[in-house]
Each structure stands twice: as structure tokens, then as C-alpha cells.
Design a binder for these strands. Structure first.
Lengths: 233, 233
DNA sequence: AGTGTTTTATGTTCTACGGCACAAAATTAG
DNA sequence: CTAATTTTGTGCCGTAGAACATAAAACACT
């Protein structure tokens, strides 16, 4: 079977929620140096300390954005789904990356030179609004997350993580199975606990019939109950 | 002694980092319905659930932005200093407030109708950039904070809080005393611990000569050591 | 198939920190 | 000035959850 890298032209429709905001000249300006990259599972997309030279758009696959804390423990800060733009925050803040991004699974990404994006942002208020809206939404989520992760107990945090994954990546045709298959360790890093506790708590949920587990496949059987656990902490 | 409410005209210079980005017509548009408000210590500036009808600018005083978590425990999410704009995030995200703001001490605030701000933002990329830059910076801080609060131990979190207060509000003429006098409870809510533990840990810092405490006045005696405690968690 | 490596699972121990109780001090109210 | 309330300071206890150990299972690689 022959494989080819998709060209930018193939992908235009997927990028359109951003590109539609632009004049054709602006579109040209952004796309002339855009490039497509394929990352294997667990491959590093950008690293902490790197200069944010490119706006990235995830076309297919799944990506996690992480930060490592003091004890070497890793926190998954955000997850990216297709078709979502990411990697722009530090460029807008005038910083280097303070997080790193890894492909959960094989992923295709378009990279657009950030300087061009900034040039257009500084001219085109519609594009500005696009980013203002996303940054404001993400900031709200981040604050919410801080409170949840610091105040809720383990069961509440795991329930949060499961519901969050459903919202982020959806479920399979059966309507129950999370479309993303995470290791217990990733699940732990998402909900701020140790791997052992993620395993234990997920087992507990399984015996309580809140979820059904088959390896890395997780079926969410009782959303209402999970939401309640999330609410009461 | 007679007191009068300052007029918008008096305050124009203080608002200037934002207003300088605007045409005089735009400036007029924003200021025509702007108003000045004075809040007493501990007074509520906006509440969770409120509609974000106004962009606010703190002219004098100090303000805390809080969220309450599941156990009724309060988390101080952000602190505002003069001259800083706040209260705009949910408007840009299309949400209502999910936090509430209280005056730490008597504070003066200018309120500008948010709809007018949005109208100008959607026309003027320089103003857009102003908010993009701030939102991006705040989002970076929020992520950093999440990791710190979840992973560092109590001493690290309290050290963080003290250094953060120094950075936010500065010190008095002696070069050591924090310019903000916080209750132990506020200190606890800032660093995600119970009031008792804030008291205990601050006492420990005092006996270690890292700080000197006199009521609510806190002198930071050994910044380097505090930074180290923050770093090692 | 066989061997090494990573992931999952479970039990056991240990401790950081929350919860609670109470007293002293400080602040506010009347 | 006195009473009431809030804040600060300490001690003690209980426990959620981390740390560690070990084994079984799953997976990867020759």
C-alpha cells in the first residue's frame, strides 16, 4: 500500500474555521510556509524551553500537553483533538514553551510560522477575536481545573478525568466506550494521582458498575453517577 | 475633610496603557458610559454567576478574585493591583462570571461597558493584541499554578504565596515588609492549605529567620532561601 | 518460542496534612 | 468599658493518599 503525506491543499477544508476569517491575501501569507508533519505515537511535538516558532493545528490523532512538577511527577495540562489549534500561547505571551506536547497516538499536524500569524493578528481583528475567545475559554478551564485538582478527592478527580475524556474525544459507536485508550499512568497524570491509585480507583469504579474496563478500553456505564461523584468531590 | 469621588477626567492618565491604543473616537466611545466606584474593604465587586457587563480597572486599592471549591473551601485565583484591568475573561469567552471578586482593602474602580469594549476590540487590532497578550500570560500563570498547588508541599506553597505577594504588591520603604497585610486565612486560601497550617508554617518560617512576623505584617528576610524552598517544593 | 520490558494489579507501610478542640489575643459592637 | 465576635496560636488525632515492594499479565523484540 503506498502512503503519501497529505498536501496543504488536501487539508484546507479542515483548517477552515481559522482560514475563513481571512482575506485571500492573508490566507496566502499564512499558507505559503505552512508544512505538514506526521508524528508517531509518543513522539515529542515540542519541548519545554523551545521557542514557539509555529502555530500548530492537529489534523488527525490525539495530543497531550504536559508539565513536569517538582517531584518529577507529570501533569497533563490539556489534551488536543482534531481539528484544534495549539502551541500558540507562549508566542502571544512573549515566552518560550513552558510545557511539552506528545502524540498520544500517530498524529498529523500542520505548522504555520508564528511570526506570520502574529502579523496577521495585528492587522485582522477577526483573527484576533478567534484567539481572544479561545484563550479566554482556556483560562476559565484552567482556573476551574486548579480548584478541582486541589480540592476534590481521588474519586472525584478520576470521575472528572473520565468525563473530560468523553467530552474531548467522544465515544465509539456503542455510545459508551471512550474513543481514547489511555494507560493508567496517563489517567493518573490527568487526575493528579499516582498510577497505583488510578488503577485502584478505576477498579473500584468497575466493581461499582460505574465503568467497565477491558484493558485500556473504558466504558462509561453510569454517567449520572460519575457526574455526582465529580460534584461532591 | 471633604471627600469627592474622582471624575473620569482625573483618572485618564491611569487608564492610559489601554486608552493610548485607541483613536480619539474609540476613546470617547468607551468613556462615555464609564463610571467610577468605590468599594469598602471586603465588599463584593462582582459575584459568581453575574453577567460580565463591564470591564473593570482597579485604580487604587487591592482586589482578590476567588473561587469556592467542593468542600466550601475558598481558593484565591488571582490578585489585582493598580492599575490593572480585570473582569473581562468571561465576556470574551461568552460566559458568566465563575469567580467572585472582593476588595482586600478600600478600592477605587472604573467600570467600562463591556459591549463597547467588545465593539472596539472587533475593530481595533491593537486593543485586541492588548487582551491577547494578557490572556496568554494569565493562562501560562494559571497552568504553572495548577502544577505548583497540586505537587508542592506546604512549605513550598507558602513560600510561593509570599514571593507572589511581593511580586504583586511590592514591599514598603524598608525593602522587606510586604505591602499587603493578609489574614492567615487569606494566606491559606492563596496557598491551598488550612488556616491552621498557614499559621503553623508561617511560624516555622519565622523561627527559621526566613520571615519576621508582626501581626499581619510580614517581612521577607531571606528571599533566596524562600526561593529555594519554592523550587524544591 | 523465548527473553526482556513495560504495564497492570494488589498488599503494606508511612506521613503530610486536614479536622477538631480549645485558649489567648485582637478586633468590633453596643 | 464590657460583651461579643473574629482571628491567631497550639496540640492531638485520624486518614487520604503517597511510597515502596512484589507479582502477574501484556507486550515488544529477536
Amino acid at each position: 500500500m503506498t502512503r503519501r503525506l497529505p498536501t496543504i491543499k488536501d487539508l484546507l477544508p479542515k483548517l477552515s474555521d481559522l482560514l475563513n476569517l481571512l482575506s485571500s491575501a492573508e490566507r496566502e501569507q499564512l499558507l505559503k510556509d505552512a508544512s505538514v508533519h506526521v508524528f508517531r505515537k509518543n513522539e515529542l511535538i515540542y519541548n519545554s524551553g523551545d521557542k514557539p516558532t509555529h502555530l500548530q493545528c492537529l489534523l488527525s490523532g490525539k495530543v497531550k500537553v504536559c508539565k513536569d512538577g517538582v517531584g518529577g511527577r507529570t501533569q497533563i495540562v490539556r489534551v488536543i483533538r482534531p481539528v484544534e489549534y495549539f502551541g500558540y500561547r507562549p508566542a502571544f505571551a512573549g515566552e518560550n514553551y513552558v510545557s511539552y506536547a506528545l502524540a498520544f497516538e500517530n498524529s498529523t499536524i500542520v505548522r504555520i510560522p508564528m511570526q506570520e500569524v502574529i502579523n496577521v493578528v495585528k492587522e485582522n481583528p477577526r483573527l484576533s477575536w478567534f484567539f481572544i475567545n479561545r484563550l479566554a475559554t482556556d483560562l476559565g478551564r484552567a482556573d476551574e481545573r486548579t480548584v478541582s485538582l486541589t480540592q476534590k478527592h481521588i474519586r472525584g478527580r478520576l470521575a472528572d478525568a473520565l468525563l473530560f475524556l468523553k467530552e474531548s474525544y467522544g465515544v465509539e459507536e456503542d455510545g459508551f466506550t471512550l474513543s481514547i485508550y489511555l494507560s493508567r499512568e496517563d489517567l493518573a497524570n490527568l487526575s493528579n494521582m499516582t498510577t497505583s491509585n488510578a488503577i485502584r480507583t478505576l477498579s473500584a469504579f468497575a466493581t461499582e458498575r460505574l465503568v467497565a474496563v477491558d484493558g485500556r478500553k473504558v466504558k462509561l456505564l453510569d454517567i449520572a453517577k460519575l457526574e455526582k461523584i465529580s460534584r461532591i468531590g
